[in-house]
Design a binder for these strands. Structure first.
Length: 412
RNA sequence: GUGGGCGUAGCUCAGUUGGUUAGAGCGCCAGGUUGUGGCCCUGGAGGCCGCCGGUUCAAAUCCGGUCGCUCACCCCA
């Protein structure tokens, strides 16, 4: 029996789990609507090049986490590990850059070849937004505010902390990186093995190392904020002021970094301590160099992605599903009438639970299990009189009513 | 890729120093109740004890391997 199973790191979603999942996505989508963001759905796979160019060929995602395969035509394709690159590609492909700024929302599955653990899967789901073509810090603020509002609406804002940092503009960041590398070179032998590799590939990541020895070295390292030019400082200040205006609390974290060159200015994460080792539930930042990197004109952008599974693990108080009405025919003559009534109610927008078979007692039990609010029963007597019995399953009150009144009665 | 924990019914789990037909609770199906649910009672279905091999008169139990799940590292949502 254990022979047939889903692929490692993938899950079937049903019942309670998918209800929570849907709740997260619906909340995100509706909140995006409030901010004027339009939904976009891109394919779940792209030419491999799209991700290689956008994520950089040294990043972990590209070097060991992509689901890459060759199709029958010999093209190298990759299941999307994240959606920002796809959206940027779509925006270029579709000529959408003519009308900036673009405000986009997406939801869908992403794929990374990793060992699964709590809050981490091979197929997982993200919702996200991208604000493309807005260079202003007000854009960063809007995007962060939307994330905060989604957390509020999910009623998990109290479990999550917003952390922000700035990487500065390209000039500041490049200057800092050189300074950091030259500092760290002196401690090369004392760095952890992981960090020695990061020194080549992604030195800013070392700032976020969990290794004790690394941390000691980092404490004395030059600070990015000391390298920021005035434009970068002004930008970051504007973002912070904007958050303050909206009453959005945040914590500065100067170890919060992004590795790739096209990331600029703001980096932020909404993190929690409630999900084991996976702290980030929403993560994003400004990526002013990305669109150009994958072949479009220089175009600024800012956005974030949120892990649906992670949010769903936190948002355990999703609303109860709406309760249907059960129809219970008694005797074969009533079956036809029951089906007609069910059709009528369903066309009136009322959810109906109608069992295909069973004795009245069994059907009543089924109604109960479907959490029906009312049970409508009808047998020979009712057929003759043109009535049905309407039973309130919570109070057990039962009344005989004219069957023509039913839709109106239930609509209330 | 590396390390820890765990694999017995759909689910949560018992199962003594190896010893007959492997159990419970919940859930499921049916009956008690041929026109009325939740509670109760009775009965039933459902297990290659993850898989392969070894030790033994005898293995769910001991040993080896393997597969899977899970948590953690790296990295990330």
């Amino acid at each position: 029996m254990a022979n047939i199973r889903p692929v490692r790191g993938t899950h079937d979603l049903y019942g309670e789990t998918i209800r929570r999942h849907r709740h997260v996505i619906d909340t995100g989508r509706d909140t995006a609507r409030l901010y004027g963001y339009e939904e976009i759905a891109t394919p779940i796979f792209e030419f491999t090049e799209v991700f290689e160019r956008s994520l950089g060929d040294t990043s972990d995602v590209v070097t060991k986490e992509m689901y890459t395969f060759e199709d029958r035509g010999g093209d190298s394709l990759t299941l999307r590990p994240e959606n920002t690159a796809s959206v940027a590609r779509a925006v270029i492909s579709g000529g959408m850059l003519q009308a900036l700024p673009l405000k986009l929302f997406y939801a869908g599955p992403m794929f990374r070849y990793e060992r699964p653990q709590k809050g981490r899967l091979r197929q997982f789901h993200q919702i996200g937004i991208e604000l493309i073509g807005a260079p202003e810090p007000e854009g960063d603020v809007e995007v962060i505010a939307m994330g905060a509002q989604i957390l509020e609406r999910l009623r998990i804002a109290d479990k999550v902390t917003l952390e922000i940092n700035t990487l500065g503009d390209p000039e500041s960041r490049i200057a800092y990186r050189e300074q950091l590398v030259s500092y760290l070179q002196d401690f090369r032998d004392r760095l952890s093995e992981d960090s020695r590799q990061r020194l080549e590939r992604n030195p800013m990541r070392i700032l976020d190392s969990k290794d004790e020895a690394d941390r000691a070295i980092i404490r004395e390292a030059p600070r990015l904020e000391e390298q920021l030019n005035q434009a970068s400082l002004d930008f970051f200040q504007a973002v912070k002021d904007g958050l303050d205006e909206l009453g959005i609390a945040y914590r500065l974290n100067d170890h919060l970094v992004r590795g790739l060159d096209y990331y600029t200015h703001t980096a932020f994460e909404f993190t929690t301590t409630a999900l084991g080792a996976q702290g980030a539930v929403i993560a994003g930042g400004r990526y002013d160099g990305l669109v150009e990197e994958i072949g479009g004109p220089p175009t600024p952008g800012v956005g974030w992605a949120a892990g649906v599974e992670r949010l769903a693990l936190l948002a355990t108080n999703e609303p109860a599903p709406p309760r249907p009405v059960a129809i219970i025919p008694i005797g074969s003559a009533a079956e036809t009438e029951a089906r007609k009534l069910a059709a009528e109610l369903r066309h009136a927008g009322i959810a109906v639970e109608l069992a295909f078979k069973g004795k009245p007692g069994q059907r009543m039990k089924r109604a109960d299990r479907a959490h029906a609010r009312f049970a409508i029963s009808l047998g020979d007597e009712e057929l003759k009189a043109g009535t049905v019995k309407l039973r309130d399953l919570d109070t057990k009150e039962e009344q005989t009513v004219d069957s023509r009144e039913i839709p109106a009665l239930l609509k209330r």
